[in-house]
Structure formats: structure tokens, C-alpha cells
């Protein structure tokens, strides 16, 4: 479904050059559950942003469903982010001036199909599934971290994406809440066939995924230390 070919990302901060991602080749198939594992600063987030088309690589190719995305316009890339990809971040990244329900519905405002009513029903369904339906009119800063992350997952799912990209989704949560979030992601993959890519620096979390990729200094390595 997605293939990365010799993908590199170089940041230049004036004189300094940071090789955040170095010559990565990666093949991700449909319905996979992948863990990307690496220490802090190894380039996991950067790699995830490149897979999610939030950032373009400095060099190399990304082929999505057989199409080279380097030729796509901003509008086309945005449409893929809207329809095909769902992001879940460590720091939740909800919009505080919107309610829970409005946050879940945010991606639908940038969609080109269906009527808003359909989406509201779908959003309610998701919130119900994650046990936060009665919090739908709350603002994000009035609910717990675990609840916020569920809202973020509901938002990631509202457009029925094929891929969920989760960047340390449990990083800000206690282990019990974190496990609940991981179970949700696991279920999404198992029951609904969503491809889940989970970025983490913890071995035991990565162990829950079906395939692990180890990253060190921006490169894919055989074994995680």
C-alpha cells in the first residue's frame, strides 16, 4: 500500500545539518500492525510524518497505492491526509476552543463528500464505542488525558481511513490508561482491518504489534538496543 524508497530527510539549521531520516526503504501492506521503535531523537516522528504526508522527504520516493506522491499538489496531499490517514499524537492535539464532538467532526469540514448529518451520527457512534459519549459537549481541557486520547482516536477514525499513524499515543498516560488505548488500536486493526503504525520507544509496547521496525540515527537497523 505504501512504499518508501531511499527516503531521507535533512534539516538544516543554519550551519548545522541534521540527518533526521537516512535512506529508509520500507514496505507497508494493508491491514498491518507495525511498531516503529527507537530511542529519543532517532527520527521516528519524522518518519511517521513522512508516511502521513505531513512532511515531504528531502530525497527518495513515496509510492502510495501505486502513485508517486512527489508529484501531488497541496490540495491532493491534503485530501489523502483527510481521507486515507488518521493521526494520533502523544500530546492529543485537540482544539481547546471546540467541544469533544466538534473536534471529532473537524476532519469532515475538509471532506468533499457526504452530508454533515451522516458524520454526526458516525461521530456519536465512535464516542459511544470509546465510552465518552456523555462527554461530547465538554471542552478538551475538562476531560482526562485518557479521554482526550480517545477523542483523538475518534477524530482519526471519522473519515474511515485506511491507516492510523500513532506517535507515542500512550506517552502522556499512566500504564493502565495507556494499555486501554493500545487495546483500542489493536482492536481497530483486528476487527476493522485498519493499518496501524505505532511509534514508541518502549519495547513492551512495541511487542504488542505484529511487526517491528527499529530505527537508530535515522536508519533502519536489525536490532533495537
Amino acid at each position: 500500500m505504501i512504499s518508501l524508497q531511499n527516503v531521507s530527510k535533512i534539516y538544516s539549521l543554519g550551519e548545522d545539518i541534521v540527518n533526521a531520516v537516512v535512506d529508509i526503504n520500507l514496505e507497508i501492506k494493508e491491514k498491518e500492525f507495525i511498531g516503529i521503535l527507537g530511542s529519543s531523537g532517532s527520527g521516528k516522528s519524522t518518519l511517521m510524518h513522512i508516511i502521513g504526508l505531513l512532511e515531504l522527504p528531502t530525497s527518495g520516493k513515496i509510492i502510495l497505492d501505486g502513485k508517486d506522491i512527489s508529484k501531488l499538489t497541496d490540495a491532493e496531499l491534503s485530501k489523502i491526509r483527510n481521507k486515507t490517514v488518521g493521526f494520533v499524537f502523544q500530546s492529543f492535539n485537540l482544539i481547546n476552543r471546540f467541544t469533544v464532538l466538534e473536534n471529532v467532526l473537524l476532519p469532515t469540514k475538509y471532506s468533499k463528500e457526504r452530508t454533515p448529518q451522516d458524520f454526526t451520527e458516525k461521530a456519536m457512534e465512535l464516542l459511544k464505542r470509546f465510552g465518552i459519549l456523555e462527554r461530547r459537549n465538554f471542552y478538551p481541557n475538562k476531560i482526562s488525558g485518557g479521554q482526550q486520547q480517545r477523542v483523538a482516536i475518534a477524530r482519526a477514525l471519522i473519515m474511515n481511513p485506511k491507516i492510523i499513524l500513532a506517535d507515542e499515543p500512550t506517552g502522556n498516560l499512566d500504564s493502565k490508561t495507556g494499555d486501554e488505548i493500545l487495546d483500542i488500536l489493536k482492536n481497530l486493526n483486528k476487527e476493522f482491518g485498519v493499518t496501524v503504525i505505532l511509534v514508541t520507544h518502549e519495547h513492551d509496547i512495541a511487542a504488542k504489534t505484529k511487526r517491528q521496525i527499529y530505527i537508530k540515527d535515522g536508519k533502519v537497523v536489525e536490532k533495537y538496543l
Binding site: 505531513l54 497541496d74 491534503s78 485530501k79 493521526f87 473537524l106 475538509y110 471532506s111 477524530r155
Partner: peptide
């Protein structure tokens, strides 16, 4: 700024 980033991540174009 953060909100703009979030909106872009969920599919907002530059034009949006």
C-alpha cells in the same frame, strides 16, 4: 498556530 497545524494534519489545504 497549533490549531492551524492540527487542521492541516486532518486535511485542511493551504487554501482552507
Amino acid at each position: 498556530t497549533k490549531e492551524i497545524g492540527i487542521r492541516r494534519a486532518v486535511g485542511a489545504t493551504q487554501n482552507d
